[in-house]
Design a protein around this nucleic acid. Structure first.
Length: 590
RNA sequence: CGGGGAGUGGCGCAGCUUGGUAGCGCGCCUGCUUUGGGAGCAGGAGGCCGGGGGUUCAAGUCCCCCCUCCCCGACCA
């Protein structure tokens, strides 16, 4: 296969496109791999599509290797299955909906759990049919509030989604591990550095769940990683491992006047000025205070109730993290009107002692594990301008539940080994999780087991964002001057540049060289454009990012061809008679 | 959905404050020259100035409404 640039449908841009910010977006547009066609929708041009297909093929090969079978659903789906699982409403505005000429509802599939479940239900009914894993590579649609960063977050994108169907948890475990293993092979082959982190199954209603993240500054996911052991988790899924403190000999709790101290900062100032005698060693700090944040929780039945979250005063509450743990409850802001309805909650002075389902207020109270049993706190007195000191967890108040609620910080202890955690950002490129029986139950997917009894099938769900992976690889591998594709997914193996003009000896030698490379099984880009200056050809070759650039130019007179490795910049001057073998051996991995 | 920025030939931008009938660079076309790091000269083509309404003798420029894009936040496998 040879691309002759004189006729390839390609136009590179000298300037960065104004609407692109992140490197992958900027370079993929500038190098002529993609064009924006719609908000959050991109056209793949020939070279871009070549990359896309190579990624797809690697995914396909590894899925087939674990025995998964490829199918293909429509992108436009009926409403009913999504009604049955409640996702027609749960998905909310993120679902693209449309009606046919008779006014019947359809949707553009954001993901296909329902359809796969129904397909298996349609054809299988015995335990003997299981296990089975099916997958597709499909265009998915999500009406993202804010598409951004080119291919990284579009409203139309390509995803490989697979689903495993097993009779029991043991089977699911095996299917899950098979997919996990396949994903490791896929991302290894793609040449993409990645981290596997534990994640919350959250809204999808499963249990074990892990994400594959490509480490990347512009990534949208934040994850922690231990500096010592190999613990890694999405920030939402980090578990604290705080040990309870032995109950100390704290004096009885007492009320103090704290005028004008509705905020933690003001309170700490006031304590240091007026209650220095009672201060712990080193004086009062925010870490000695217990901050109580009120939110509303929305229950699946549509009702709302207040919830108070208690965290140390020097920490912020991470609502996403709380929400993930309380799922399917959703967190909403607590408004002025809500305060009016709950007069026991005194804004700025909410105290722990009246909180908890079994306490005076009856309001549900969850605590971050940092507020451990036996620790002593300064907290609100539930009265304007007053606080309570020496309020001891477990003695003076009891939470309904411990929930990891604080924003995770770099330097927090690792739950596995206690060493410092680091925080980094990544792009979610793959996700494996054990769905369990949620969809099978909702859609009544059952088989008969060995004893002739019906069993609900248990499922796993596994996704790879194929189009996103292309961008993630561009992010991970580019440099200042352009793209820099790993050998396995580059649209061509070698980019042949000549400074010769159409028809002259140099040009003919270059053409012969390119043709020979092609006949040796390489995919070749041959810059045969006429009247384009060498400078432009070199810049374009670097921008396009093939792993090897071969130059037939001034060194040709002395019998040499220049062979450059794009990534390392290493340049070899190779005698003409050896050049083909040199390029082939570099392209095949030395 | 909230905050900020921006929409002007294919691309990147100026013009808007102070209204007077659209300009620069790149790219594109023709010719000549040039050919190892985004060439030179000459001559061209190409624009309902995001859309709609208004003010005015006159609107890219002023006013109102809408749409779109980018960034931050919210949301989101």
């Amino acid at each position: 296969m040879m691309y002759r640039l004189s006729t390839t449908f390609l136009r590179t841009l000298r300037d960065d496109p104004a609407d692109a910010e992140v490197p992958s977006h900027r370079l993929l547009v500038r190098a002529g791999y993609i064009r924006r066609a719609a908000p959050g929708g991109y056209t793949w041009l020939p070279l871009g599509w070549a990359v896309y297909r190579r990624v797809e093929e690697i995914v396909r090969e590894e899925m087939n290797a674990i025995g998964a079978q490829e199918v293909h659903f429509p992108a436009m789906l009926p409403r009913e299955p999504y009604e049955a699982t409640n996702r027609w409403t749960e998905y909310g505005d993120n679902l693209f909906r449309l009606k046919d000429r008779r006014g019947v509802d359809y949707l553009l599939g954001p993901t296909h759990e329902e359809m796969f479940t129904l397909l298996v239900k349609d054809l299988y009914s015995s335990y003997k049919d299981l296990p089975v894993s099916l997958y597709q590579i499909q265009t998915k649609y999500r009406d993202e509030a804010r598409p951004r960063a080119g291919l990284l977050r579009g409203r139309e994108f390509s995803m490989k989604d697979s689903y495993s169907f097993d009779l029991d948890q043991d089977g699911l475990e095996k299917s899950y591990q098979a997919h996990r293993g396949a994903y490791i092979k896929i991302f290894d082959r793609l040449g993409l550095p990645y981290v596997i982190v534990s994640a919350m199954a959250g809204a999808m209603g499963g249990s074990l769940s892990e994400e594959f993240l490509a480490e990347c500054e512009v990534g949208e996911d934040t994850f922690v990683r231990c500096s010592k052991c190999d613990y890694a988790a999405n920030t939402e899924a980090v578990k604290s491992n705080i040990n309870a403190v032995d109950t100390g000999q704290y004096p009885a709790a007492a009320t103090i006047d704290t005028p004008d101290s509705p905020t933690i900062d003001a309170l700490v100032d006031f304590l240091n000025k007026h209650h220095n005698d009672k201060a712990p060693k080193g004086g009062w700090t925010a870490a000695h205070t217990l901050k109580n944040v009120v939110v509303n929780v929305a229950h699946p039945d549509g009702t709302k109730s207040p919830l108070v979250i208690g965290v140390p005063g020097d920490r912020e509450v991470d609502l996403k993290r709380v929400e993930a743990q309380l799922s399917p409850l959703e967190i909403e802001p607590f408004t002025e009107e809500d305060f009016a309805k709950h007069p026991k909650l005194v804004r700025g002075y909410i105290g722990a002692e009246i909180l908890g389902t079994d306490s005076e207020s009856g309001i549900r109270y969850v605590l971050d594990p940092r507020v451990a049993n036996g620790t002593s706190w300064v907290t609100g007195a539930n009265e304007f301008g007053k606080h309570r000191i020496n309020v001891v967890a477990g003695r003076d108040f009891t939470p309904d539940q411990l929930v990891d609620a604080v924003e995770v910080h770099a330097g927090d202890p690792c739950p596995e080994c206690g060493k410092d955690l680091r925080i980094d950002r990544g792009i979610e490129i793959g996700h494996v999780f054990q769905l369990g029986k949620k969809y099978a139950e909702a859609l009544d997917l059952k088989v008969l087991d060995q004893n002739g009894k019906t069993q609900v099938v248990t499922m796993g769900s596994y996704g790879i964002g194929v189009s996103r992976v292309v961008a993630a690889i561009a992010e991970a591998t580019h440099d200042e001057i352009g793209l820099c594709w790993p050998r396995n997914i580059a649209p061509a193996d070698v980019h042949v540049v000549t400074t010769g003009k159409n028809g002259d000896d140099l040009f003919l030698a270059a053409e012969k060289f390119a043709t020979e490379l092609e006949s040796r099984g390489l995919t070749v880009i041959f810059d045969d454009r006429n009247g384009v200056s060498p400078g432009v050809k070199f810049k374009d070759a670097e921008l396009l990012g093939m792993p090897v650039i071969a130059v037939i130019g001034k060194k040709f007179d002395s019998g040499h061809i220049e062979v450059r490795e794009r990534k390392s910049g290493i340049q070899h001057e190779v005698p003409i008679e050896d050049a083909i073998n040199t390029v082939v051996s570099i392209s095949k991995g030395h």
